[in-house]
Design a protein around this nucleic acid. Structure first.
Length: 222
DNA sequence: GCGACAG
DNA sequence: ATCTTGTCGC
């Protein structure tokens, strides 16, 4: 995989914001060709003390979500947690983990926001633009935006709106369970992201890719 | 100035 | 995110 818009990571929060403003216009919302999607990678990063551990789990969506590849990378914390600047903390750990994969996944699913971000450039957008690949964010809580109440059944959804703009989707992946917040990362439309998240949420609230990636980064194994 | 605030 | 046991409900 090639980095299309490489930039320094050893930056100050102020410089990070500037980088986001420069890259945000590069996010492309276009129809996703589902026929070209065979593998979906779930990515997550856990933090323990002063160490971070990035984990990736690749599933084959045409073979009953079978796990076909996985990778882990551990290293020192390189950036503090600042709401809105999560990518500068996690991407530096995700990139080296990606290098361990046998092949580039067709879609990247992040445990974070995509366009549902103050500057429309959450972690899912950042990674998607860097790799120039389809990406989406599936977050457990809201960073920005509001939405109308959802029905209690599985599949219930409502637009996530911020400053008059639909930036994501509040989606109930399991009946009577708190919804997840889906948003576009890169090279797909919101409806595509919603369909993907709902279709891959077969056993838990979180879609299988991010659910497994979370387990792998947290426990160190599946 | 006062809250809100992905992981 | 992380610190952490049991407990209520489908």
């Amino acid at each position: 995989m090639t980095l299309h818009h490489a930039h320094p990571w050893d930056v100050t929060p102020k410089e990070a914001v500037q980088i986001q403003r420069e890259l945000a216009p590069l996010v492309r919302e276009e129809p996703l060709d589902f026929d070209a999607v065979r593998t979906v990678a779930g990515l997550d990063v856990s933090v323990r003390g002063d160490r971070v551990r990035a984990a990736i789990v690749v599933l084959d969506v045409r073979d009953d979500l079978r796990v076909v590849d996985q990778a882990i990378w551990e290293g020192p914390v390189a950036f503090p947690y600042v709401p809105g600047l999560l990518s500068f903390r996690e991407v530096p750990a995700i990139l080296p983990a990606l290098e361990q994969l046998q092949a580039p996944p067709d879609v990247y699913m992040l445990d974070a926001q995509g366009r549902a971000h103050p500057r429309r450039f959450g972690l899912a957008c950042h990674l998607g633009v860097l790799l120039n690949a389809p990406a989406l964010g599936v977050a457990k809580t809201i960073l920005v935006g509001r939405h109308e109440p959802l029905d209690e059944d599985k599949g219930a959804a409502a637009p996530l709106v911020h400053k008059g703009e639909t930036v994501g989707l509040a989606l109930r992946t399991r009946a009577r369970v708190k919804p997840v917040y889906v948003s576009v990362g890169h090279r797909m439309e919101l409806r595509d992201a919603g369909r993907l998240a709902l279709r891959l949420a077969v056993k838990y609230k979180l879609p299988q890719p991010t659910h497994l990636a979370h387990r792998l980064s947290y426990k160190g194994e599946l």
